[in-house]
């Protein structure tokens, strides 16, 4: 039975929603892996033909065709569904998540181009959960260490993104968001018109993102009501990047880290305050 008082399980459930959507999206676009597609294995295998890489990977090469990858994505959907019924700490649950992790690792060999930070965060969380929940060997302490790792990676991601924006003249001058929103790739016509109508909003949004991302790691140390401000900000931030920029997978991958942040905040708070 799934227990919602288990933080690792909550992390997995939130992440599973995003992974299911992302996998179904890949299934819809599976033709990009065809011999005529952008990620055709005929071309993508060039990345793996160097020196000592190919012997290890050869057994998997047949998989990277349209039928092979469609099957892999279908199996992944079944694994994710199965994880709703078997707890992470059960043997069956651990086997399911391990197979899920394996499918993510395999697909990463062919999706070198086109994957983004949400894919990396998802992979990072899944591998951590696999390592830290191994039946018979994983202790409660190790599960806590896994949650610490996920929370620290999440905070690092925000802080690095914030600092990289802080050193950027385009972000400091308040033009970056307007410029990104004006692209068809990551923007929207309505958002562009809004920012053209209210130029002050550009500066406000840029500095809002710079400041909140840079100081985000404070949410690990602050008393919970103050830490919650950062998580609410993060929720709104990711929701709007999904709505305006179409970055839907980021929402689920980063929301999945918030229970881990909650866990670490409470462990630190109990010691500090």
């Amino acid at each position: 039975m799934i227990l919602f008082n288990n933080i690792s399980q909550i992390v997995l459930i939130i992440l599973s929603v995003g992974l299911l959507i992302s996998t179904l999206e890949y299934l819809k676009k599976v033709q990009i892996f065809s011999t005529k597609g952008l990620l055709s294995w005929n071309v993508m295998q060039l990345k793996w033909t160097k020196e000592n890489q190919s012997p290890l990977l050869k057994p998997f090469f047949k998989l990277f065709s349209v039928p092979g990858l469609a099957m892999l994505f279908l199996i992944r959907c079944l694994l994710i569904t199965g994880l709703l019924f078997f707890p992470l700490q059960s043997t069956v649950g651990w086997v399911l998540i391990s197979l899920l992790g394996l499918s993510l690792l395999l697909a990463s060999l062919v999706t070198h181009y086109g994957s983004d930070g949400s894919d990396q965060m998802s992979m990072l969380i899944i591998i951590t959960l696999i390592l830290c929940n191994m039946p018979a060997l994983a202790s409660n302490k190790l599960r806590d260490i896994g949650l610490w790792f996920i929370a620290l990676q999440a905070c690092l991601s925000y802080a690095v993104a914030g600092i990289a924006k802080l050193v950027s003249a385009e972000w400091r001058s308040g033009t970056a968001i307007k410029d990104v929103f004006s692209t068809k790739t990551y923007g929207s016509k309505k958002a562009t018109l809004f920012l053209q109508k209210y130029p002050a909003a550009n500066l406000f949004l840029c500095w809002n993102v710079i400041i909140m991302e840079t100081i985000f790691p404070l949410c690990l140390f602050l008393p919970w009501p103050f830490a919650l401000i950062f998580l609410v900000w993060g929720f709104i931030f990711h929701f709007f990047t999904a709505v305006i920029m179409g970055l839907n997978a980021f929402f689920w991958a980063f929301m999945a880290t918030y229970p881990a942040i909650y866990f670490v905040n409470h462990q630190i708070s109990w010691n500090l305050f």
Binding site: H112, Q120, M123, L124, V160, A161, E170, A176, V180
Partner: peptide
């Protein structure tokens, strides 16, 4: 990093993508 497990967290910075290709 064979499996692209080491992320680069500098989303849209320092130079945000301002162009459509």
């Amino acid at each position: 990093d064979l499996f692209n497990l080491i992320p680069l967290w500098t989303f849209f910075a320092p130079h945000p993508g301002k162009r459509d290709y």
